[in-house]
Design a protein around this nucleic acid. Sequence first.
DNA 1: TTGAAAGCGCTACCAT
DNA 2: ATGGTAGCGCTTTCAA
Lengths: 329, 329
Amino acid sequence: MVSIVDVARHAGVSQATVSRVLGQKVFVTEETRTKVMSAVAELGYQPSSLGKALRAGYLDSIAFLVSDIEQGWYSALAKQMQGALQAQGLDMLLFDLGHSEARLTQMLQRASSLRLRGVVLATSDLFDLNVLQPIVSNLLASNIPVLSIGQRFDQLGISSILHDDVDAGVQAVAHFMSRKRRRIAYLNRISLSVAGRQRYEGYVAGLERAGLCFDEALVWGSPLYRFEGGYTTTLEALGNGVRFDAILAGTDELAIGAISAIHDFGLKVPHDVAVVGFGGLEIGRYVTPKLTTLSGNPAAVAEQITRMLFSSAVSSASIRRELVVRGTT
Amino acid sequence: MVSIVDVARHAGVSQATVSRVLGQKVFVTEETRTKVMSAVAELGYQPSSLGKALRAGYLDSIAFLVSDIEQGWYSALAKQMQGALQAQGLDMLLFDLGHSEARLTQMLQRASSLRLRGVVLATSDLFDLNVLQPIVSNLLASNIPVLSIGQRFDQLGISSILHDDVDAGVQAVAHFMSRKRRRIAYLNRISLSVAGRQRYEGYVAGLERAGLCFDEALVWGSPLYRFEGGYTTTLEALGNGVRFDAILAGTDELAIGAISAIHDFGLKVPHDVAVVGFGGLEIGRYVTPKLTTLSGNPAAVAEQITRMLFSSAVSSASIRRELVVRGTT
DNA sequence: TTGAAAGCGCTACCAT
DNA sequence: ATGGTAGCGCTTTCAA
């Protein structure tokens, strides 16, 4: 590997001068500049980010920890983040947590050991604060900011960005009411997901506001994810003789799984059962019927992330979800 | 930041001894070991991967370059990769190329500058070999292996892993024949995508083998991607009065977009038009009707990647696609 | 404007 | 079994 000393020797200048030329900050004679640049070109020199990082004390990368990259919301967010970060000259280390707390703590330590510039934690899974506390404190003490997407971690002293899911839940129920639906089921993880709880809270508040009575049998807090979770949970309810005319599903994927189960059971969407999802994923516009959903905004979130990650103020940003009415309601 | 010298001082041993204890390779007295370990614990010492990397000459990370992380195939692959790499103690830098050659070259240089352990390039977009050649050579010369997923780059001297798309195309056409379809359209990027070309080749070979005549009007080489590409392209063909009774779509996403367009146009799948996709994504099992597809195997590919990336032999692995017959045919 | 040199944190070599 | 130390590639003082 050709290093900066080789370039210096080749150009007949000092190492420091090469560094200055490449750093483009300080003034250098046009003559030495050309000398150095041609040496760089001739030797095919590529500066080592490692040397720079060791010297600087940190690597120009941030960690993006995500509960499940296969979920459309997270892959959309990852893409937006990648773009936003690149504009700032930062690389992105992606860590898929697979909903595991052990993985999370491991990856957080990794971030610390790599002296990253920051950590973005995007998961609404529930974690043990006592486990996270010391690790996050460590990170913050090492001047590595941590930002949470999808749930607040105020006790850990970090900022967060989320959608207003309680409001969204209320909106959804009101919309079902306008469609004359009265037996509205809630399909989502609840005990293990903070977002699941928020949406559930909105659901309950919405029922109350509408004067509907709460029915335990219509709350499906299955621990499963994605299409399959929506499918099996809904099919099970149908098989058990539970009756309902609407489903508020915690993600678009759960919603699509639910719709599939409803069809397989021989019922029609939205005639027999109306369905609303969360996320506003692109897929929702291409299933039949098209999915009504509470929009999410990955671009806005990514943009907020880059703004908030390096701001020392601890705060919590909330983004409103808009109801996008399509064919399933 | 507490470093190894602090630990050494605190434990009353030399820096080298601390390193040895932590490296766990060499023999150390139980006594010194405990001394060191307790110093580590007391100081909350975390080894810097940066120091290690500079010393070793490389960072324990690999770059995963992907044309579009939002496409289901790539996010599934990313997830599998993450798991497989972690088992080897490697981190994964994710770079979303957004189908841009400029981004690709930039990211490849970045990999070199970061002294990564390897680069996995997962895209079937077409690139200018003359542009890639010097950069890849550089990488290989620096002992950074490069592996291609989804297309061969034999001229660049790197290994590749792909599915057998020609065979898959032939399988699809034969399957359409068994369903009595004669006017089979091909929907996919062709001129800009190597996989698109392979699948097209299989399509043409399949038609020939079946004795069907090729019809230019049934080849929709639109440059668009994902659901939207499938939707607009198909709707346009329908609007133009093109008639067909089957579509071979280059990805599951294109297929689902096409199905949506067919419905919106007032036709039925599979009654009027049968559809086959590529990829075997989970979503295909939850749309209505369920999608017939040529399976892909992200787990198998990820496993191959970890095997082939560090093997010096240059080779090309091909994985057969299996036709998964479901409701759209 | 340029050069010399220290030092970021680590491992591995050479002594002891 | 342990200690001393060089050196990975870089930036940034301090001097000239």
